[in-house]
């Protein structure tokens, strides 16, 4: 389908913060994103049926109380559970960035939708929030959001306090979960160095279909080289973060 017909819903409300820049990141590629308040979507779940991409932006939904993404996940599960299930079963795309990733994980949609949860995101090893630009490697995977970046090392900002990926069970069980993700091509981004204590330095994972991506770094904050952290590397070029949105859009163009 033509990209101008691709419909993107960007969720907002209840403490989500990054809806504007997430919408901008889509808009710059010629699609028409709509920022929608959770409550409005609950009232009109058909919007989800009509959409091709759902974006859960970063932020501090519900103040990150209890656990980051936890209450947003509960709200989505009990108010939009059915619509979301259909959305996923229809093969539509979801991207969850930072708090959005945390919510997808708490919802049980990542790493494997509709199965017992076995992965979570918890407090960074350092025990606090960190904002810095970090190097990430993009392994070959099933993820449709990173497929134009396979094999590259890219620099993106992280801004989180709870980005450490942890797997369930004892060491053997944790290793097994990791190996399964690896085998299924679900590891979408890894930190080049240990940044926050995340297991196997994972920074982003996708579901087995590659259509649902959750990642801790913020590609929407790296869509222009003016936003690069080094004074010497600022320019009018498009930023590397843009590629992730472009990849998702390309997938829709080809497949819907």
């Amino acid at each position: 389908m033509n990209r101008s017909n691709i419909k993107v819903l960007v969720l907002t409300g209840d403490g989500i913060n990054c809806e504007e820049e997430t919408a901008n990141a889509f808009r710059e590629h010629g699609v028409q994103p709509r920022i929608i308040h959770i409550q409005d979507l609950i009232e009109k779940p058909t919007l989800l049926t009509e959409a091709h991409i759902l974006a859960l932006p970063g932020g501090f939904s519900f103040g990150d109380e209890i656990g980051s993404g936890q209450i947003l996940a509960l709200k989505l599960k009990y108010s939009l559970g059915e619509a979301l299930t259909t959305f996923i079963k229809d093969g539509k795309l979801i991207i969850g960035i930072c708090n959005g990733f945390q919510a997808l994980v708490r919802l049980g949609l990542l790493p494997k939708p509709f199965t017992q949860r076995e992965m979570t995101l918890t407090h960074n090893r350092q025990g606090h929030f960190i904002n810095r630009w970090v190097d990430l490697t993009i392994p070959q995977s099933k993820c449709v959001w990173t497929n134009t970046l396979y094999g590259l090392t890219i620099n993106l900002p992280i801004r989180h306090g709870e980005g450490k990926i942890v797997f369930a069970g004892d060491k053997a069980s944790q290793d097994k979960i990791y190996e399964s993700l690896l085998e299924q091509g679900q590891i979408a981004l890894t930190y080049k160095e240990d940044i926050n204590g995340s297991s196997f330095k994972i920074a982003g994972v996708s579901d087995p279909s590659g259509r649902i991506l959750g990642l801790m770094p913020h590609p929407e904050a790296a869509t222009s080289e003016w936003l690069n952290p080094s004074g010497g590397e600022k320019s009018g070029q498009i930023g590397i973060g843009s590629k992730i949105f472009e990849s998702g859009i390309q997938f829709c163009e080809t497949n819907f």
Binding site: N17, H128, I130, R132, N155, P157, L227, P229, G231
Partner: peptide, 25 residues
């Protein structure tokens, strides 16, 4: 300072720290 989010809204061109990657910005 790095515990403050200094670039949410994706509009911060000059951030609290600068420099090159090799020296950690």
């Amino acid at each position: 300072i790095r515990r403050y989010d200094h670039e949410v809204k994706a509009a911060t061109i000059v951030k609290p720290f600068t420099g090159t990657k090799e020296v950690g910005f």
